[in-house]
């Protein structure tokens, strides 16, 4: 019993919350991870992901299937991310420092071939990368999350952000360089503790 997204979308449009819940089940991981990497902590990610799904639900009547559901979902969630950040910037009640501090949401996961020390070090590195990511502009964050974490193609990103392929290419280029520069700049603060190569590669991913 795995009805395609389109069927669930049609049912959800008529107010079938069970159908929508199935869509949520399918996409909550993607939406939550996007929100988490965008905001940098679990508390905000939970709020933002909920907000994203509520917007999706309410926008469903306008979804006519010209793009895939997931592309459309990324578009709406991106807008929710932008709006949330703007709301915060206007309120100014959470500084970047606080955001960075509260980024400590990930619990280190130990694997068999990794010592606790290595795991702690990897966790620290990941927090540090997250802080650098959260310090970027919203557009740079979004494009990096979509490309590097959600694994979207340039075409999918262009559709989700409503821009051209050329814009995706140049924005991604700028975003990667910006993140690299942040990591390098902060690394100097940490006495070169973090290196930009070798460590933290996909082999270390949990």
């Amino acid at each position: 019993m795995h009805p395609p997204d389109e069927v669930l979308v049609e049912k959800s449009k008529k107010g079938d919350l069970d159908a929508f819940e199935e869509l949520v089940r399918r996409y909550e991981g993607k939406v939550y991870n996007m929100a988490y990497r965008f905001m940098g902590n679990h508390a905000d990610a939970g709020d933002l992901a909920q907000e994203g799904f509520i917007r999706l639900y309410q926008a469903l009547p306008g979804f006519r299937g010209e793009s895939s559901f997931s592309t459309w979902m990324y578009r709406i969630v991106s807008n929710a991310c932008r709006d949330e950040l703007r709301r915060r910037q206007r309120q100014r009640n959470v500084s970047l420092d606080e955001l960075a501090k509260s980024a400590a949401g990930n619990i280190p996961v130990y694997s068999a071939e990794e010592s606790p020390e290595d795991a702690a070090e990897r966790h620290e590195l990941q927090q540090y990368v997250q802080q650098c990511l959260t310090s970027l502009s919203e557009e740079h964050r979004l494009v990096l999350i979509m490309r590097e974490m959600q694994g979207l193609s340039y075409e999918e990103i262009a559709a989700a952000l409503g821009c051209s392929l050329g814009t995706v290419k140049s924005r991604l280029n700028r975003a990667r360089h910006a993140l690299k520069d942040k990591i390098k700049a902060r690394r100097e603060l940490f006495n070169g503790e973090y290196r930009l190569s070798v460590k933290g590669g996909t082999s270390n991913a949990v």
């Binding site: 909920q50 360089h177 460590k199």
Partner: peptide, 29 residues
């Protein structure tokens, strides 16, 4: 350096939504 940056990002672990996530959402909907 660019490759290293991308690897660092891709190396960030996936997180899972809180257990109550779907129920909370359902209630709000």
């Amino acid at each position: 350096e660019l490759r290293g940056t991308i690897n660092l990002l891709q190396g960030l672990p996936e997180v899972t939504p809180p257990a109550a996530f779907r129920n909370e959402l359902r209630e709000r909907l």
